[in-house]
């Protein structure tokens, strides 16, 4: 799922500067699972903004703000928007932009989307997939070096790991201040098989991976 974190309150207030009537939109999918944009967080955000003198014109937690079809079915909240000068979106950037396709109002992001990750428990997420468009997991015993090696090296490790840990402090841990060293994925792969250390992997085709916005049209 899309892992996200809430932006600091100060940053949200700065973006809402001059806005008086705010409608809050949450997400019942990933942001609820991450506890960054579900029912409880929307309620909490409402309280915070009211305390800062904002009028909250309404709140809603949409099933999947990233799915235009579902969004279209449930636009019951539209009338409330007439009185709103902005929408605070507690969903990822995909959710925000999908909402933006349907609603012509200033949209303010309340979350920082981080990555496609796995959940160990609430607050512990690990990026396992770069959505690279060309899955190589069969070659690396189900462990993705493109994502889980800090340098994305495909042909084996650099010399920087110590005791099986990467020389780079992991980004999520850095953000939360938790000391949680990241494993050298090559040490993990090597434990399972030596084959990827013997085979040669060609440079990746970044046409499939990089900007501008990838699309599937069929």
């Amino acid at each position: 799922m899309i892992i996200s974190e809430q932006k600091p309150k100060e940053e949200i207030l700065e973006m809402l500067k001059g806005k008086k009537r705010v409608f809050i939109v949450g997400c019942a999918a990933c942001a609820t699972k991450c506890q960054t944009g579900g029912e409880d967080e929307v309620k909490e955000m409402k309280k915070v903004l009211q305390k800062e003198g904002k009028k909250i014109t309404g709140t809603i937690v949409l099933d999947t703000p990233c799915d235009e079809r579902i969004m279209k079915k449930d636009l019951s909240f539209l009338p409330a928007l007439k009185n709103s000068d902005s929408l605070l979106i507690m969903a990822c950037g995909v959710g925000l932009q999908t909402i933006g396709k349907l609603i012509d109002r200033p949209l303010v992001p309340a979350l920082n989307p981080l990555f496609a990750g796995t959940t160990e428990r609430i607050g512990r997420y690990y990026e396992y997939c770069s959505l690279c468009g060309d899955c190589l997991l069969d070659k690396f015993e189900g462990l993705c070096p493109l994502t889980r090696c800090a340098k994305g090296l495909l042909n084996g490790p650099c010399g920087g790991a110590r005791d099986g840990k990467c020389e780079v402090n992991p980004a999520p841990a850095r953000r939360s201040g938790v000391n949680d060293e990241i494993d050298c994925v090559w040490a993990l792969i090597y434990e399972k098989t030596k084959e990827p250390l013997k085979a040669y992997y060609e440079p990746r085709d970044y046409k499939k991976i990089l900007m501008p916005g990838r699309r599937v049209v069929r």
Partner: peptide, 23 residues
């Protein structure tokens, strides 16, 4: 491969690593 930017004096820099050393 080169030390990762995060350990240097421009930690905000975009790491490239388009090719790895073997490539």
């Amino acid at each position: 491969s080169g030390d990762h930017p995060t350990i240097g004096d421009h930690p905000e820099a975009k790491p490239v690593y388009d090719l790895d050393p073997v490539q």
